[in-house]
């Protein structure tokens, strides 16, 4: 079965480029441009992995992560934090909050694929 990645990200450009990389590697990619919408799609589609941006209008990535981890329906989906901004101790903070990994933009396409493969494999 084709594996699905959900990207929660407000920048269209990042969605399009990430989608291109992951689709070329055989993933199906869904996207949401804000936290609320992302949580809804995570519940409805149960993706294999979520790529989550931090800086978003409305509820930010940290709050989105908290809600995803609180809901039993989505708590088991690995979430990879995906950020272009410096966050003080961002890696530690995301681990403490239950994220599977922390990834900086701009990224190396191969590294992104490797990372997604790794967490999807660990989940199943």
């Amino acid at each position: 079965m084709q594996r699905t990645v959900l990207i929660i990200e407000d920048e269209k450009l990042i969605i399009v480029s990430t989608q291109m990389v992951l689709e070329a590697a055989g993933f199906r990619v869904e996207s949401a441009t804000n936290g609320e919408d992302g949580i809804g799609k995570a519940k409805a589609q149960a993706p294999d992995l979520i790529l989550l941006d931090i800086m978003m209008p409305g509820i930010d990535g940290w709050e989105t992560l908290t809600r995803l981890k609180r809901d039993p329906a989505t708590a088991g989906i690995p979430v990879v934090i995906f950020t272009a901004r410096e966050h003080s101790r961002g890696h530690q903070k995301s681990t403490e909050m239950g994220a599977a990994d922390y990834f900086r933009k701009p990224f190396e396409p191969d590294e992104l694929i490797e990372l997604v493969e790794k967490h999807v494999a660990q989940k199943t």
Binding site: L13, F107, P109
Partner: peptide, 13 residues
């Protein structure tokens, strides 16, 4: 970094 992500990803691919 946001536009750079696009440039880097597309040029790499």
């Amino acid at each position: 970094r946001t536009p750079l992500t696009g440039i880097k990803t597309f040029s790499t691919m």
